[in-house]
């Protein structure tokens, strides 16, 4: 078992650096020669049309898909300390037959209960009142909120978010913005692919990467 890195109130200085990164799926190159640097407390937004390779880039950064060329590295972390990132894809990875709280407890046990207690995290994302409900009954937006709660129960510096606001209502959008903002306050890093505009209170923290060919 890997030694878990324990973070204080702040993550310290970290930099996500991608150099000459090319990614694609099934032999098709979707994006190439990507160079970007994301420092602690910064959020990188990936913009681009459908099929521009935003999701593939996130999977590549997460290490699920291997890059076709180049590479990316998260500098400033302990090499042996296990995974340093949360990936939040469009599938919410929820199990029906388990309650909302049980779903979250599982991820807390597996990823390390280093963050908020599970009931607090549920309150934070607005699911506190249905903690005992079978997760199979959740609506799409509620499922999304539960998936976001997973990011809160285990502290990891890098968040990779794929369409975090999908299926969420207006308050949900505000919630995502608040969560990202709080994460950046701690010195965390966020890479998010989104079609919805995400506007942080402090615009200097945001940078944008335009992907895909202009049509």
């Amino acid at each position: 078992m890997t030694e878990r890195q324990v973070f204080g109130p702040s993550f310290g200085e970290m930099v996500l650096r991608a150099q000459g990164l090319a990614c694609g799926r099934g032999g098709v190159v979707l994006a190439e020669a990507l160079n970007f640097v994301v420092a602690s407390g910064r959020c990188l937004l990936l913009r681009g049309p459908n099929g521009a390779g935003k999701s593939t880039l996130l999977l590549t950064l997460a290490g699920i898909v291997s890059p076709l060329a180049g590479g990316s590295v998260l500098e400033g972390t302990d090499e042996d300390a296990g995974p340093q990132l949360h990936y939040c894809g469009h599938r919410n990875a929820l199990k029906p037959r388990l309650s909302v709280l049980e779903n979250l407890d599982f991820w807390a046990a597996l990823n390390g209960p280093t963050g908020m207690a599970a009931p607090d995290a549920l309150d934070r994302v607005g699911l506190g009142h249905i903690a005992g409900l079978d997760a199979g009954y959740l609506s799409a937006g509620q499922g999304r909120r539960l998936a976001l709660a997973r990011l809160l129960v285990s502290v990891r510096p890098l968040w990779l978010l794929d369409e975090p606001t999908a299926a969420l209502d207006v308050e949900g959008h505000a919630l995502v913005t608040e969560l990202i903002d709080a994460h950046l306050d701690r010195g965390g890093l966020v890479v998010a692919a989104t079609h919805d505009p995400i506007t942080l209170p402090d615009l200097t923290r945001m940078q944008t990467l335009a992907m895909g060919r202009a049509r």
Binding site: M1, T2, R4, L59, A62, G63, I64, G82, P83, L85, H86, Y87, G89, H90, R91, N92, A93, L94, K95, W107, L110, N111, G112, R150
Partner: peptide, 19 residues
């Protein structure tokens, strides 16, 4: 695999083979 859990299990603190 279908609900996306498998990808997340690979990001766990535990080595994937142990899972």
């Amino acid at each position: 695999n279908e609900d996306g859990t498998l990808i997340l299990l690979r990001q766990a603190d535990l080595p994937f083979a142990a899972i």
